[in-house]
Amino acid sequence: MPAIEILGLEKKYEVGFLRKTEKVALKPFELAVQEGEIFGYLGPNGAGKTTTLKLLMGLIFPTAGSARLLGRHWRDPDVKTEIGFLPEQPYFYDYLTATELLEYYGELSGMDPTAQRLRVPEVLERVGMTAAASTQLRKFSKGMLQRVGIAQAIIHDPKLVILDEPMSGLDPMGRLEVRDIIHSLKDEGKTVFFSTHILSDAETLCDRVAVLNEGELRAIGVVADLTAQVGGKVEVVWQGEKAKPAVEALGAECRTTASLVRAVLPEAKLDAALDAIRQARERLVSVTPVRATLEDYFLQKLGRKPLEEVETR
């Protein structure tokens, strides 16, 4: 049974005041996230990722289509006892302490009070917030809010965790910790569905990803399969400078360090480059295939790079 099934969800907005024009935020698509998967939902800013997550959580209503969550109708409110959600750039009641906030959400999720009392410190520990347990949220930094946000999403031990940009606002250490949390959730048998525009996170974490661009689903699959669609590149290293102009002419970028020249070029141009080096009678040192990244995939398939996040600290 899939944890999430999206059945042709579509969202159109009316923009403008007098002359209304329709803007399509999300074109209808189908997507199934299997139980126990870590699924990455990728795309540049404004691709429709947040719209999809808000639709799934019932915060906004679709113009067409529906979905199933954990095998149940998505509008069944009780299904949400099994789902944890972290919105993008979360903001919480800042007059509460971290502990009070988690207790409040636990109660709303119908948790048993005794189980909850044990669970709150445990979850705070897990997101590294034990020290701030009785601090009011108004004194929290953005990174701390993000951690509390993850804590509230998992407080009720949900089967499915939906996270919108969970790594944003975090420093590199924090990001690493969140990755660990996501991994451990998978180990506990949970399904994690998260959106991100930071591709390296997706590459290291995800079993499968979906790529969204301008409200349209562009690809679904295992990361390796997607990057394999992008033509591979090779790195050629040789000794001597004479072959450099000829290799550069093939469209390679060359960098010289000491007596060695390194060039990265598309696989198809490898033979021509090797010929040039041989003709110049220079010594070939190595030929290594370079693994394509999701960034390459984005550049090639979407013609754009996902915006790199601006770090706040």
Binding site: K54, M57, G58, L59, P77, D78, V79, K80, T81, I83, G84, F85, L86, P87, P90, Y91, F92, Y93, Y105, L108, S109, G110, G149, Q152
Partner: peptide
């Protein structure tokens, strides 16, 4: 948007 996390519950 504090409401998001409330309505994401069985509320």
């Amino acid at each position: 948007r504090t409401l998001y996390t409330v309505l994401a519950r069985p509320v």
